[in-house]
Simulated assay, not measured.
Amino acid sequence: MAPRAKNPVETTEPTRRSTRISAQPKSELPAKEVKKAAPRTKKRTADDGDDESPAVKKSKAKEAAAEAPDTEESNEKAAELATIDIGDALPSLTLKNEKGEDVDVATLAAEQGVIFFLVPKADTPGCTNQACGFRDIYPDFTAHNFAVYCLSADSPSAQSKWQTKKELPYPLLSDPQRTLITALGAGEGGKTKRSHFIFEEGGKLVEKKIPVKPADSPKLALEYVKSVA
Results as ranks from 00 to 15, higher is better:
residue 154 D to M: 05
residue 109 A to P: 05
residue 62 K to Q: 10
residue 149 Y to Q: 02
residue 192 T to K: 09
residue 105 V to M: 01
residue 36 K to P: 07
residue 176 P to L: 00
residue 207 E to H: 14
residue 147 A to C: 04
residue 225 V to C: 11
residue 7 N to C: 06
residue 48 D to L: 07
residue 174 S to H: 11
residue 201 E to P: 01
residue 142 T to W: 00
residue 82 A to Y: 04
residue 144 H to Q: 13
residue 219 K to W: 04
residue 214 P to T: 05
residue 44 R to Q: 08
residue 224 Y to C: 03
residue 129 N to I: 07
residue 18 S to L: 08
residue 106 A to C: 01
residue 116 F to Y: 04
residue 56 V to L: 03
residue 138 Y to F: 11
residue 9 V to W: 02
residue 18 S to M: 10
residue 146 F to Y: 15
residue 201 E to R: 02
residue 87 G to N: 13
residue 148 V to G: 06
residue 156 P to C: 06
residue 188 E to T: 09
residue 175 D to P: 15
residue 5 A to F: 05
residue 87 G to V: 07
residue 164 T to C: 02
residue 37 A to R: 14
residue 182 T to E: 05
residue 208 K to V: 06
residue 204 K to Q: 12
residue 60 K to I: 10
residue 172 L to Y: 06
residue 69 P to L: 12
residue 179 T to E: 11
residue 118 L to H: 00
residue 27 S to E: 06
residue 123 D to P: 08
residue 120 P to V: 11
residue 104 D to M: 10
residue 142 T to P: 02
residue 173 L to D: 09
residue 4 R to N: 04
residue 60 K to C: 03
residue 9 V to I: 11
residue 135 R to Q: 13
residue 46 A to L: 13
residue 55 A to R: 10
residue 143 A to P: 02
residue 189 G to L: 12
residue 176 P to H: 05
residue 139 P to Y: 10
residue 189 G to Y: 11
residue 109 A to C: 14
residue 137 I to K: 01
residue 19 T to K: 08
residue 166 K to I: 00
residue 127 C to K: 09
residue 210 I to T: 11
residue 1 M to W: 03
residue 74 S to L: 07
residue 2 A to T: 06
residue 79 A to H: 10
residue 223 E to G: 07
residue 168 L to W: 05
residue 26 K to Y: 02
residue 181 I to V: 15
residue 121 K to V: 03
residue 11 T to K: 02
residue 133 G to V: 00
residue 184 L to R: 01
residue 212 V to P: 01
residue 55 A to D: 13
residue 81 L to T: 15
residue 132 C to A: 02
residue 152 S to A: 07
residue 90 L to E: 03
residue 131 A to Q: 01
residue 9 V to C: 00
residue 98 E to L: 14
residue 56 V to F: 01
residue 38 A to Y: 11
residue 9 V to P: 00
residue 16 R to S: 07
residue 126 G to I: 06
residue 10 E to M: 06
residue 122 A to Q: 12
residue 28 E to G: 02
residue 81 L to K: 08
residue 95 L to T: 10
residue 229 A to V: 03
residue 118 L to F: 04
residue 94 T to S: 14
residue 113 G to A: 03
residue 152 S to Q: 04
residue 126 G to H: 13
residue 56 V to D: 02
residue 149 Y to I: 00
residue 76 E to R: 14
residue 159 Q to E: 05
residue 54 P to M: 13
residue 117 F to C: 02
residue 37 A to I: 13
residue 183 A to Y: 13
residue 78 A to Y: 03
residue 118 L to K: 09
residue 133 G to Y: 00
residue 12 T to N: 01
residue 203 G to F: 06
residue 20 R to I: 03
residue 7 N to L: 10
residue 199 F to V: 05
residue 108 L to F: 08
residue 138 Y to K: 07
residue 132 C to V: 12
residue 70 D to V: 11
residue 14 P to Q: 04
residue 194 R to A: 10
residue 73 E to A: 15
residue 27 S to Q: 09
residue 124 T to M: 04
residue 226 K to V: 08
residue 137 I to P: 09
residue 111 E to V: 08
residue 199 F to C: 12
residue 174 S to F: 10
residue 222 L to M: 14
residue 172 L to T: 00
residue 80 E to V: 01
